[in-house]
Amino acid sequence: MKDQAMTTLETSVTDQNNKFSANNVDVYYGETHAIKDVSVNIENNTVTAFIGPSGCGKSTFLRCLNRMNDTIDICRVTGDIRLDGEDIYNAKVDPVQLRAKVGMVFQKPNPFPKSIYDNIAYGPRIHGLFKTKADLDGIVENSLRRAAIWDEVKDRLDAPGTGLSGGQQQRICIARAIATAPDVLLMDEPCSALDPIATAQVEELIDELRENFSVVIVTHSMQQAARVSQKTAFFHMGNLVEFGDTTKIFTNPEDPRTESYITGRIG
């Protein structure tokens, strides 16, 4: 009796703790069925890693969470994805507003051909997040500090963002995403174009970001998933094979396919 009560309580707590809840999501690219009936919950203040072999649909699913797939003509999404209980594919939801709440960092660092300052100020300017120039300065400095790059660029905020090294550029992109004050940060293989040192810096940063955001990260590196995430989802050929605590997935996977992938037999 007492056990049951505890379980019910836990479930409701978990429900409240969910940032995103996706149920029965299918994605089609024209004729191709890219995502097949995927259901995932993404919790607050948690790093969730999506792993799986190339072409398994993990990036596609990530792009459903901020409706980036809308920019692809032939892409069709069905199912139910809720952010804080609100259906994001509802006709009343403006994808532009949604993307301000769900920031995204891409595989290749893509700073705009503007100054570092203007790169960070881009989102706040578009969404009118400040009243005075001093506010904006504050947002820029704060974002750069949280992306752990302030000390490296504070003296050259007017220099073009494209002139930095790859790792610095990626941290600029993270700072740019933070500057719009999102709730969730989606990262699509953020370290695949970076060297090991820059990767370590970004990973450390991801761990710190967890205090304020939920982070969803797509990665090819199993070590990275194990290092930075608390939850891991394993995708294979458009299916969500297994989803659970990272430690459990990596030490005691339930599905044989997960085990094969983690031990390097498929991929």
Partner: peptide, 14 residues
Amino acid sequence: PQALRDGSYGLGAT
């Protein structure tokens, strides 16, 4: 590059 457009859309730009 498409990456620049993605970056901007990803920040919620129209």
